[in-house]
Amino acid sequence: MTRHLPHPILTATVILMWLLLNRFSVGHLLLGALVGVIAGKAMSALRPPRVRPRRWWLIPGLALRVLGDIGGSNLAVAGQILRGAERRVPGFVEIGLRLRDPFALGILATILTAMPGTAWIQYDRASGRLLLHALDLGDGTDWAGIVRERYEGPLMEIFE
């Protein structure tokens, strides 16, 4: 089982994508399964580090929170662009992260970059310091606290 299907989630995703792009039929299911198995074998030749979420049942809650935050900050950033430059202070924030798992850090980077209004500029692996740019720093908004509490905390619970 593990020898022929080293990455079952990847294989399942490829089959699902194949069936979405084509119409569902037994022939396409077989063809997609073939491509999926080959993709899994090709992936294991690259030897990626194994990813093991410990508390996977917390993932839907985090996903819902991220979707809601992205929707809200879409409206906020649209308003800031339409209002113009006055009363808006852009700038960099430096945040010390405790998260160390590379996969979880990748997810955190994706969340922060996909969120309008914040951009992940640079991360130093040795010191764990993240350089974040914010479109509007706000009046004394605690950016480090928001990032740690809303996203880093749940990610640490899920992965570490």
Partner: peptide
């Protein structure tokens, strides 16, 4: 650095 926030509106919302 401010402009880099603008295209995320198109790619998310």
């Amino acid at each position: 650095y401010e402009r880099i926030h603008a295209p995320t509106l198109g790619t998310s919302g």
